[in-house]
Amino acid sequence: MHVTRGFTGRPRVPDAGLPPGQYDAGDDWPVLSAEVTPDLAPTDWTFRVDGLVEEPRTWNWTQAHELPASAYEGDIHCVTSWSKFGVRFGGVSLDAFLDVVRPHASATHVVAYSHTGYTTNLPLSDVTGGRAWIAWEYDGRPLPAEHGGPARLLVPHLYFWKSAKWIAGLRLLDHDEPGFWEQNGYHARGNPWEEQRYSGD
């Protein structure tokens, strides 16, 4: 890689929390959805888990809130290069939903889909073990619609396009099935620490 003449860049702030190629967006939280923000009230929101499970199930807003509350405090990383530190989301761990539906041993991947029809694919192991949430609060307040409210998927250890906004459901599969951005050239897994931005990275 060659040096760019006269380029110094912003002051170096060593930060072990910043994955390669990312910068700290500070207080900004850019909105990057590719579709029209849906007009979705909490009373119209539902979340379904089906596919390779013992007992497919749909939760409405009230039923989902009866599951044990769980929070995420930490960092998020967008493929467009910004990272945001110390965010606080509230919701329910995805494990709580999966415990109810009981995944088959053959399930290896999920497709998460939105009320808009947006899709994204993830290995099942990336959304279990306390690493994924259905989130409806940000910083103690209802999640704004443009950020995926009333509820979004939250998988903070992967690039944020995996954290589907306006989450409508998960389907468990025995194979990987590319989602919306993954069909448009983006990486199947999207691990920011390995800089898996595009297919082929």
Binding site: E35, S114, T119, R171, L173, F180, N184, G185
Partner: peptide
């Protein structure tokens, strides 16, 4: 179950081209 998955909700905007 190995059939191609399509969400039951309306699909937003399908991709246009192979990249």
């Amino acid at each position: 179950m190995t059939d191609t998955f399509a969400p039951t909700t309306r699909f937003a905007v399908p991709g246009r081209i192979a990249v």
